[in-house]
Amino acid sequence: MHRGLFITFEGPEGAGKSTQARRLYERLQAAGYPVILTREPGGTRIGELIRRILIDLRHTEMAPTTEILLFSAARAQLVSELIRPYLATGGIVVCDRYADSTFAYQGYGLGRDLEELRVITEVATGGLKPDLTFYLQIDVEIGLQRKQHARERSERGGQPAEWNRLDARDLAYHRRVMHGFVELMKQEPERWHALDADQPVDELAEQIWHAVMPLLDRITPLATR
């Protein structure tokens, strides 16, 4: 059992996970808690190299098994190098996506065997699960439109925005992924906290903060260490 607090963010594309993960990280940091922010795939030097392969739009020939194993390899490195060591110090880890995405995207989305994915994920993570997972709910079409608009703004010189190989899959695929997340929440309702992502960013951030506050009793602020 780890000593710290492990919080993850999940949801369809364009739900605003990265924004809310960063907002929570910044608020925890400002409140004096030991906290790091990371993401999947990525978060380590090796993980970021794997990420480039996974999201590249040119890699259309990638086999589903290759995709699963690459995601799991990046996750194994992240857990081993960053997440477990930081939790062991009693700190908070905020992660933009984690293993639930594999079950939703490769399991329900691509139709891969869920039991096989559980075995692979167990090996990659050593059984490490989040203490709390926020699911940001949004209609998949609206979410994809958000990402497309962000990409268009980026191309016109705005803030960088990613449009990757998984984003480019058809609408039916993204609907299967959303259904997968709904099924995952039913299996572990005590861990998941679902919130409407189609609301002002500040209001959503406040709801997330109120859900996290009761768990902060277990964390020693930096000033009192």
Score class of each variant (00 low, 15 high):
residue 122 E to L: 09
residue 123 V to G: 07
residue 123 V to E: 11
residue 124 A to F: 13
residue 124 A to P: 09
residue 124 A to V: 12
residue 125 T to F: 10
residue 125 T to S: 05
residue 126 G to Y: 02
residue 126 G to I: 03
residue 126 G to M: 00
residue 128 L to W: 06
residue 130 P to D: 07
residue 130 P to C: 00
residue 131 D to A: 08
residue 131 D to G: 07
residue 131 D to K: 04
residue 131 D to E: 01
residue 133 T to M: 07
residue 133 T to K: 03
residue 133 T to Y: 03
residue 134 F to C: 08
residue 134 F to G: 08
residue 135 Y to I: 03
residue 136 L to C: 05
residue 138 I to S: 08
residue 138 I to V: 14
residue 139 D to Q: 10
residue 139 D to L: 13
residue 140 V to S: 01
residue 140 V to M: 12
residue 141 E to Y: 08
residue 142 I to W: 06
residue 143 G to Y: 06
residue 143 G to I: 01
residue 144 L to N: 06
residue 146 R to T: 04
residue 146 R to F: 05
residue 146 R to G: 01
residue 147 K to A: 05
residue 148 Q to E: 15
residue 149 H to F: 03
residue 149 H to C: 05
residue 150 A to K: 10
residue 150 A to D: 14
residue 151 R to Y: 10
residue 151 R to E: 05
residue 153 R to V: 03
residue 153 R to F: 00
residue 155 E to S: 01
residue 155 E to R: 11
residue 156 R to T: 13
residue 156 R to L: 15
residue 156 R to Y: 06
residue 157 G to T: 13
residue 157 G to H: 15
residue 158 G to V: 10
residue 158 G to M: 12
residue 158 G to A: 04
residue 159 Q to Y: 09
residue 160 P to F: 09
residue 160 P to M: 07
residue 160 P to K: 11
residue 160 P to N: 08
residue 161 A to Y: 00
residue 161 A to S: 14
residue 162 E to Y: 15
residue 162 E to C: 08
residue 163 W to I: 02
residue 163 W to M: 00
residue 166 L to T: 13
residue 167 D to K: 03
residue 167 D to M: 07
residue 169 R to A: 12
residue 171 L to G: 00
residue 172 A to M: 09
residue 173 Y to V: 14
residue 173 Y to F: 15
residue 175 R to Y: 10
residue 175 R to V: 07
residue 179 H to K: 10
